[in-house]
């Protein structure tokens, strides 16, 4: 288990040292959210109603941008092959990398979301729910995303392909994330059930993601 956390720390250090990547994702998040009122008109009531949807979709798109990074650099310089031959199972290597992606991208995006909520006139009462759902939902984004990143590692047009492959798989996370937040803003009263399902999705992706990603990596290393 220590080796697992060492790998997580290594990836986090790399992400911080490389810089840029996290900042780019955050900047993209801000920009997509800021473009929405420009496209939809400045009607504050409308924006407040659809704020949770805009924030969640923008978060998915921003996370998508950085998914390719999960395995790419380590595959390019051969570090991934070394990790595959180490005693740590490849499933755990994939899990460690997805965890690092969640910490370095998912959490910052989730923490930025409330500030962007201000731009969209999101009800202040919904802020705790927004942060909670985003923190609970982003592991699914990173772990399902890791599958896509592993599958498209050697593909041409990797980035676009990754979006096409991964976005449909994000639909449950998107639906329950948004429904938990709008349960608070629209008082539909389904917060607890949506939130619990969201957590279940994340926990499920913790299993499915590493299994499928490791299978995909193994196929490409043969």
């Amino acid at each position: 288990m220590t080796r697992f956390w060492t790998l997580v720390r290594r990836d986090l250090t790399l992400a911080v040292r490389e810089g840029g990547a996290i900042g780019t994702a955050l900047g993209f998040f801000l920009l997509v959210v800021a473009l929405m009122p420009l496209g939809l008109g400045p009607d504050l009531n409308l924006l407040a109603r659809i704020a949770s949807g805009i924030l969640w979709i923008a978060l998915l798109l921003s996370a998508l941008l950085s998914l390719g990074r999960i395995f790419e650099s380590d595959s390019d310089d051969g570090a991934l092959e070394v990790m595959a031959t180490s005693s740590l199972p490849l499933e755990l290597v994939a899990a460690a990398k997805a965890t690092a992606h969640w910490i370095s991208t998912g959490i910052p995006l989730a923490l930025l979301a409330p500030m962007l909520g201000l731009l969209l006139n999101l009800d202040i009462a919904a802020y705790p729910a927004l942060i909670a759902t985003m923190l609970a939902g982003t592991p699914a984004v990173s772990f399902i995303g890791a599958i896509g990143a592993a599958l498209t590692l050697k593909a041409r047009r990797g980035g676009l392909l990754l979006a096409l492959v991964v976005l449909p798989l994000y639909i449950p996370t998107l639906i329950f994330g948004i429904s938990a937040v709008s349960a608070v803003t629209l008082q539909t009263g389904a917060f607890v059930s949506s939130f619990l399902i969201l957590i279940a999705l994340s926990l499920g992706s913790l299993v499915l993601g590493p299994l499928a990603a490791a299978a995909a990596l193994r196929i490409q290393m043969q």
């Binding site: 599958i147 798989l169 639909i171 449950p172 499928a212 299978a215 995909a216």
Partner: peptide
């Protein structure tokens, strides 16, 4: 083989997607 992995991931998630769309 990679397409096969994706197809299996898809078929695993399909019931969940169906459930979430019904809920939505």
């Amino acid at each position: 083989k990679l397409t096969a992995v994706l197809a299996l991931v898809g078929v695993t998630l399909l019931p969940i997607i169906k459930f979430s769309v019904d809920w939505w």
